[in-house]
Design a protein around this nucleic acid. Structure first.
Length: 277
DNA sequence: CAGCGTGTTGAGGA
DNA sequence: TTCCTCAACACGCT
């Protein structure tokens, strides 16, 4: 499900539903999701704590609690939250965890492929938590600077698509939006990153920002599984220009859209519109 | 039945 | 050492 827009939509939903509530009982069905702490301590830190704020770093969701601790969630491929009235959620084989809240509702977490992660860290140490420490800024961050992006890309021998998926170069972008961004700026995904000039880096930044914000406005993209209760399913899939197997020809030049592999990732590209540098 | 996938990491190679 | 690639993670869908 999740790249930056989908993660932000999940956060917007959670903010509306669970801000200022307290966690009560917790059941963990798939223990391996909790990475850096025991189940016992995970429960100890979360039970009876109040959710003060929910923030995002790249694709990480960070729930800040009133005991100085933060619960960090990464949805990876298929992590999903569900909010229900108490006793109305039915536990199934994909249920990872079930949290009882102090307003007679429950927060459930499901993950079909079991790649999602939970971590617990002191809020003041969030930025030294290794996976977050390594993240670069995302394109909707006000302080994002495309000169910095240019500096990083100009040192990289990776293909531009691979570089833009590297969360230490720029965060928040995944396999769908990277294809959309590169189509928008007319750059072929196999272009070597260091060959891209500053002016194109500025365009990449502008496109990325516009596309990600636009997608958030449409509640994200639903290809297979991005849906959860309490919010209408995203609709940005209707606005995608290339990354969708139903798009057979280029919306700009009518050329056939190619499907290639770039570093093992399925990639949609218009060979006519997108220039290889 | 085989192949594929919206993400990330660690092992192994250059 | 540093940079890069690719398999692995786990499971449902085509």
């Amino acid at each position: 499900m999740p790249e930056l827009p989908e993660v932000q939509v999940v956060i917007n939903f959670l903010e509306k539903e669970i801000l200022n509530l307290k966690f009560k009982e917790i059941e963990i069905f798939i223990p391996k999701i909790i990475k850096n702490i025991s189940i016992k301590d995970f429960k100890k830190y979360i039970i009876d704590s109040k959710i003060l704020s929910i923030t995002r770093k790249g694709k990480y969701i960070i729930l800040n609690l009133n005991n100085g601790v933060s619960w960090i969630v990464h949805l990876r491929m298929e992590g999903k939250f569900f909010i229900n009235n108490k006793n109305e959620y039915s536990i199934n084989k994909h249920t990872v965890a079930l949290f009882e809240l102090d307003n007679n509702k429950t927060l459930a977490f499901e993950d079909t492929r079991r790649f999602a992660t939970f971590d617990i860290i002191q809020t003041k140490n969030i930025n030294s938590f290794e996976p977050i420490k390594k993240l670069s800024k995302d394109p909707i961050d006000e302080s994002f600077n495309y000169n910095d992006l240019f500096q990083k890309l100009s040192k990289s021998n990776k293909k531009i698509k691979t570089a833009l998926l590297d969360q230490t170069i720029i965060s928040g972008i995944g396999n769908i939006y990277v294809d959309e961004i590169l189509f928008d700026v007319k750059i072929h995904p196999q272009t070597i990153a260091k060959k891209i000039p500053l002016t194109q880096c500025e365009q990449i930044y502008n496109s990325a920002k516009r596309i990600l914000l636009d997608s958030i406005k449409h509640n994200g993209t639903t290809i297979n599984s991005f849906k959860f209760n309490g919010i209408e399913t995203g609709s940005y899939q209707n606005y995608l220009m290339v990354h969708n197997k139903n798009i057979k020809e280029c919306k700009k030049c009518k050329n056939k859209i190619s499907f290639i592999k770039v570093n093992g990732r399925g990639t949609f590209v218009c060979d006519k519109c997108q220039k290889l540098f």
